[in-house]
Amino acid sequence: MMTLKDPVALAQALIRCPSVTPHENGVLTQVQTWAKSLGFSVERPIFTDKNTPDIENLYARIGKNGPHLAFAGHTDVVPVGDEKAWNFPPFEGAIKDDKLYGRGAVDMKGGIACFIAAVARYLEKTPLEGSLSLLITNDEEGPGINGTIKLLKWAADKGETWDATIVGEPTNPNHLGDMIKVGRRGSLSGVITVQGKQGHVAYPERAANPLYLTIKLCEALKNTPLDEGSSHFQPSNLEITAIDTGNPTTNVIPAQSTIRFNIRYNDNWNIDTLKQEIENRLAKVKLQHGNASSASYQLDWMVSPGGVFLTKNERLVSRLSAAIEAVTGRTPELSTSGGTSDARFIKDYCPVVEFGLVGQTMHMIDECVSIKDLEQLTEIYEKFLEFFFADNSNE
């Protein structure tokens, strides 16, 4: 019989639900069953939006007083790719050589299993002096439109507030205890459409090739670094991700070209100042070269997935660090590296950090997690609950 204190059994049960975004396929029902058996009240709101699939989410809470700690995560997983390339069926939850295999093992069904097991162990020994909640979405690996961002607003509109949140993403690069993510760079993307005039390559005087302006615009974006970093963040970086004319021929001057780019920016910038910097760089190119070409450009900004943030909350960061060191003997690095996660939405409601399993196999064929790591992460989460709720400070 499954015990809720066993993270391996819980992780296996979650892996066996083939919850590739946006399909729930029983995975939230499994979490709901466990949460209710631990005394949580559970709600499963469904959010919708145009041109995106409807997404079911889960919010669970136990306790009525503060402090209020939330655990956030996602039950959806990325597609398995070529299933024949897997050594074990991706939704079987097979165990071999002390490793649990399956899609979502580390990203991040294993993390959810560890937290639930930790709560089960904690509640068995200690009366809860505060509140715990679960913020679980099935839309993190997909568009992210009908998931955490709407779940947070839905809960806040009902009067929910949180003092701190842990996101159970796989943050450790090599060993459990290596790293806590205490912030993230912001992300900003844009598309530049360069308009020229189509024509025959033998008669360039009758056309306006957009690629020459395209090249100069790309140089303006990349040639000067945005900054040299800050005390908590690596340098901001702009990457050109695509240049396209849609022109498969060699004897036609294209009518237009597009440039796509993304910027990962640090706390030297905010959305407005960064947009202004890019717009100024592009405007200088047009001023310098506009008379030499009849090509023109238009810049369109894409919806930003999240701004830069840094969590300095002592209660959250120091207690989690202490729990990690107590279990693993490692002092975790406080890092702001990497991409984005749902922490970008949570930081608008309360202090948030990310800590979970080792992420080396996430999204890969034969994704797997060490059985030892599942047990140790459960111990870390349990120890953190002890430290967090024993601390009466408001830091």
Rank of each mutant, 00 (worst) to 15 (best):
P305S: 10
I55Q: 06
W34E: 03
L123T: 07
V8F: 02
R185F: 08
N223G: 07
Y297L: 08
G104V: 09
R103M: 10
E141C: 12
S236H: 05
D366K: 08
G130E: 11
T258L: 00
K275H: 01
L299C: 00
S294Q: 10
D178H: 07
S189D: 06
D342Q: 01
K275D: 05
M364Y: 10
P79Y: 14
H200L: 13
K84E: 12
G63V: 07
V201F: 07
L14T: 07
E43I: 15
V252C: 09
M1T: 14
T249R: 15
N262I: 03
S133G: 14
G102E: 06
S341T: 12
P235T: 10
L100M: 05
T148Y: 12
Q360F: 10
F233W: 01
V191I: 15
F233L: 01
D76Q: 06
G290A: 13
I180H: 06
L38M: 13
N266D: 04
A390F: 00
F384H: 05
K153L: 11
Q298Y: 03
L320Q: 06
R315Q: 04
N172D: 08
S296T: 15
I15Q: 03
A85G: 06
C218D: 00
P127K: 07
T249V: 14
E124G: 12
F309A: 12
V352L: 07
G26W: 11
A60T: 13
S393D: 01
C350E: 03
Q32K: 13
K383W: 04
S296P: 11
P45W: 11
G63P: 02
T361N: 03
P210L: 06
I346V: 11
E239A: 14
N138V: 10
L385W: 02
S236Y: 07
S231K: 15
V352C: 03
T137F: 12
Q195W: 00
W269R: 00
A113G: 12
T224C: 02
G104F: 11
L135D: 02
Q298S: 11
A283P: 00
I192C: 07
L128I: 08
S189A: 13
Q276F: 01
I166R: 03
S37H: 09
E205S: 11
E83G: 04
G111P: 13
I259K: 08
E395I: 10
I215K: 15
A72H: 01
A70F: 11
Y122P: 02
G196F: 12
L377I: 08
N313D: 06
A323N: 01
K153S: 15
G307L: 09
Y381H: 08
Y297C: 10
N209S: 05
L69V: 02
L377K: 12
R344K: 14
R61F: 00
P89S: 05
T311A: 01
D97N: 11
